[in-house]
Amino acid sequence: MKAFCLHLVVSVLVALTGIALYHRQIVRPLQMIGVVDAAQVFQAKEALLVRAMADSRSDDQRRHAVAEAQRFAASFASALAELPDECQCLVIDKAAVIGAHQELLDLTPVLKRKVKL
């Protein structure tokens, strides 16, 4: 009878440990949601490019500003595509979020760093 009780207790502890580890390592990361404010990043870059165009004195400076805008568009798309892999979470636009949730992770600063803003 003592052996049976000992086996039962050990089995229950092993099962509970497995469930806890599964929840911690698998389920909880899947519930993480990353949000990014794409409009804020675009508006910040737009302001910089408008200022660069307004301050430009030659066609060469204007061409450089246009080339910078094209580089930004390409880098923005690739940086946005890399975010879900880096955080191992679902990434959605901040404008789509209604209400707040404790599992939300703001990735806007990460996106700004990736596009060198």
Rank of each mutant, 00 (worst) to 15 (best):
A100H: 15
A96H: 06
I33R: 11
C87F: 03
Q102K: 07
C89F: 11
R71L: 02
K94L: 14
Q70N: 07
K116M: 01
R113S: 15
A20G: 07
M32N: 13
R71F: 01
A20M: 00
A74K: 08
C89T: 14
K2M: 13
K112W: 10
Q70C: 01
A95F: 05
H23R: 13
Q25F: 10
L8R: 02
E68W: 00
A15G: 09
V91L: 11
K114H: 01
A44M: 08
L105D: 02
V9A: 15
I98T: 06
S11N: 05
E103G: 08
L80C: 12
V97T: 00
A38V: 11
D37V: 03
A100I: 14
L111C: 10
L83Q: 08
A69I: 02
A38W: 07
T108P: 12
G18N: 00
V35L: 05
V66W: 14
L48M: 14
L105S: 06
V35Q: 03
F72E: 02
A81E: 11
S58L: 06
S78M: 03
H64G: 08
Q102P: 07
E68Q: 06
R113T: 14
A73T: 04
A69R: 11
K45G: 07
V10E: 09
I19P: 01
V12P: 03
S11K: 06
I26A: 11
Y22K: 03
A67V: 05
F42I: 13
Q61N: 02
V12H: 03
I33K: 12
L90H: 10
I19M: 03
Q88P: 08
M53P: 05
Q40D: 09
K2W: 12
A100T: 15
H64W: 01
A3K: 03
Q88G: 15
V27P: 06
D60Q: 13
F76I: 04
S75P: 04
A81S: 10
S75I: 11
L49T: 13
M1W: 00
V9C: 15
V10P: 00
A65Y: 02
C87P: 01
G34D: 04
R24K: 01
M32A: 14
Y22T: 01
A77L: 09
I26H: 11
A81Y: 01
A81F: 00
G99K: 05
V14L: 12
E46H: 14
C89A: 15
K116R: 12
E46K: 15
Q31E: 15
L80N: 12
P29E: 03
V41N: 02
V41R: 04
G99N: 06
T17R: 00
G99L: 07
D37K: 02
K45T: 12
V10T: 13
I92D: 00
Q61I: 00
A3S: 03
A73K: 04
L107V: 08
V97F: 04
L83W: 07
L107D: 04
Q40I: 02
A81K: 11
L16D: 09
L111R: 10
A15R: 04
P84K: 09
A67T: 07
D106K: 10
C5S: 08
D106G: 10
S58T: 14
V66H: 14
S75L: 14
L30V: 05
L80D: 12
